[in-house]
Design a protein around this nucleic acid. Structure first.
Lengths: 228, 228
DNA sequence: AGATGTGAATAGTTTCACAGCA
DNA sequence: TGCTGTGAAACTATTCACATCT
């Protein structure tokens, strides 16, 4: 992941720390759930519990956006939902290109969460002749060699790479050449990109290894207790 | 994700910060690649470049494990690989249970990265009668109602939840009841777990929303430049 | 000479505790 | 009164710069 600063000045001149941006999306989901339940207002305590954070952190996070609560009362669910969606840039519609239609790519193409809130998958790509031309999630899989042209014609603003590791850098370079500056990478490689391009990485085996570390620590603690 | 402390005392009494643990897995992958290329030694500069971090950070991270480099020379690739694998607990074999064999679960079951380095998928579960009994990635999908019994018989130490959001908490509770203390959650919900249970969360739509935020910021910056 | 290992400085994040306002 | 908003304090992480060792 590329990160040169740990906070970002957004549209309105607001400065929002990175750690906060990551949690805003979580708050947004919790707010949507409250809204669906018919709740009109909520408190920092309730919303924080739903998001799995401490209430003080929630209030601090929201304070970076401005003043949207009412002291003694709480937050208006609809107002806060709209404000967070706006700050996250979800009021602008964004076209996503998904490259690599193997098992994972297939799952991502079908994943409902992708289609919600301001995103839509505009095109699917693969390099394998056997996949090109097939229909997945209602879209025809295109030849990855057409990536540049389609990115321009469909105004793709985010690229999602779900290719094998050895193809990822080539795809990334093609995306960057076509002007894409936001990439979500599922391939287990560190992508090299010019400055100004944001890469976020999701790596399943790394998540497992982190769990393994903690699991081992817990086992060691249990042994020590048994001995002592 | 549950985190009560931001660093963890491991097996040897070493204290390793959380941020470092997450990067050790990245270094391990870079080291494996160097090893496959036949490199016997490397430097903090080379390894840091391969891992996408700054060399000082790499050296600081490795310093938490002990002294494994040689001043003026660098690091022995094989020695450092083994040491990181040991600290991450990858020398112990861990059984993983995967619950929810929809598109994503199917992709995860087939994902090679899951099977490497100390992990193996011991069992697959689903709640849908149409899926129970089918074979996926060489394993028969079992009824999620048998989860508790199988976790015990197969000595499952990590649970991976790839169910729809509304099923996730129930599955989580069943895992915890059966004694599982490490969970990787792909469902878009915040799981409630007792203390002592680690949950890590992978959320695709949150990653997209973070990219959206930065994309918007870049667009705003470009507009300001055009005006100014 | 050359690269590691690390104390010190800097930067970023979380939590506390309470002032301030409805 | 009750809950938000926020300075200040505490904690964590990153980076620098150089002493240290081969």
């Amino acid at each position: 992941m590329v990160r040169r600063r740990s906070s970002s000045r957004c549209d309105d001149g607001l400065v929002v720390p990175d750690a906060t941006v990551g949690r805003l999306a979580v708050y947004l989901r919790a707010l949507s759930a409250l809204g669906e339940q018919g709740r009109a207002t909520t408190s920092s305590e309730e919303l924080a519990a739903a998001a799995g954070v401490n209430p003080a952190k929630l209030r601090k996070d929201l304070s970076y956006l401005g003043t949207y609560g009412t002291r003694g009362v709480g937050y208006d669910v609809a107002v806060l939902t709209d404000e967070i969606a706006r700050v996250l840039g979800l009021t602008t519609h964004r076209a996503v290109a998904l490259i690599g239609i193997g098992n994972l790519g297939h799952a991502l193409a079908d994943y409902a969460g992708f289609a919600t809130r301001g995103f839509h998958i505009a095109a699917l790509f693969d390099a394998a002749p056997v996949r090109i031309g097939t229909t997945v999630a209602g879209l025809v899989v295109r030849d990855v060699r057409d990536l540049g042209a389609v990115v321009l014609s469909e105004r793709v603003s985010i690229g999602v790479i779900a290719t094998p590791a050895d193809a990822a850098q080539g795809v990334c370079d093609a995306l960057v050449s076509a002007g894409v500056t936001s990439i979500l990478n599922f391939a287990p490689v560190v992508l090299a990109v010019p400055s100004g391009v944001d890469v976020r990485k999701v790596d399943l085996s790394i998540e497992l290894q982190i769990l393994s570390f903690h699991e081992q620590r817990k086992a060691a603690g249990a042994s020590l207790e048994a001995i002592g």
